[in-house]
Simulated assay, not measured.
Amino acid sequence: MFGLLLLLLDAQGAALIRPGDWEYKDLIAILLTVVSLIVTFIGFIVAVAAIWGFQTLRGIAEQLAIETSKSGSDNYLSSEKFKEQVDAAIAAGMEARARDAVQDVLGASIVRSDVAPEHQMRDEEWRD
Rank of each mutant, 00 (worst) to 15 (best):
E23V: 15
T56M: 07
D26E: 15
E80F: 15
T56C: 04
G53R: 07
E118V: 12
H119N: 12
A98Q: 09
A29I: 04
P19C: 06
L32T: 15
M94K: 13
D74L: 11
L6I: 02
G93S: 07
L4A: 08
R58I: 05
E23M: 13
T33A: 09
L57S: 11
V102E: 11
Y76I: 08
M1C: 09
A49T: 14
Q12T: 04
A91F: 06
D114F: 13
I38E: 08
M94F: 04
A29T: 10
E67R: 10
Y24A: 14
R58W: 06
K25I: 06
A88T: 05
S113F: 10
K25Y: 08
P19T: 08
D114G: 05
D114K: 14
T56E: 10
V48S: 08
A116Y: 02
A116I: 02
V105D: 04
G107R: 01
F2E: 02
E125F: 07
I28C: 15
E67K: 11
A108E: 13
A92Q: 10
G53P: 00
I42F: 12
G3I: 04
I38N: 08
I90Q: 06
V102R: 09
R99Q: 04
D114P: 00
I45F: 07
A49V: 09
L32S: 15
A61W: 01
Q63I: 06
L64C: 08
R58T: 05
A96H: 02
M94E: 06
D123Y: 06
F54G: 02
L64V: 07
R99F: 05
S113V: 14
L8Q: 02
D10L: 15
R112E: 03
S69D: 11
Y76C: 02
L5Q: 03
P117L: 02
A49L: 10
D100S: 13
K81Y: 11
Q63W: 04
K83G: 01
V105T: 10
L57W: 04
D74P: 01
D26Y: 13
V35M: 12
A61C: 01
M1T: 08
A88W: 02
L7A: 00
W126S: 05
Q63M: 09
V111E: 02
R97S: 12
G72M: 12
G93K: 03
Q120S: 06
H119Y: 12
I38T: 12
A29L: 11
L32D: 15
K81I: 15
V35L: 13
G43A: 06
E118M: 06
E124I: 11
F2P: 01
L4Q: 11
I28Y: 15
V39Y: 03
L8T: 01
A61N: 06
V39N: 09
A29N: 14
A98V: 05
I42V: 12
I110A: 03
L32Q: 15
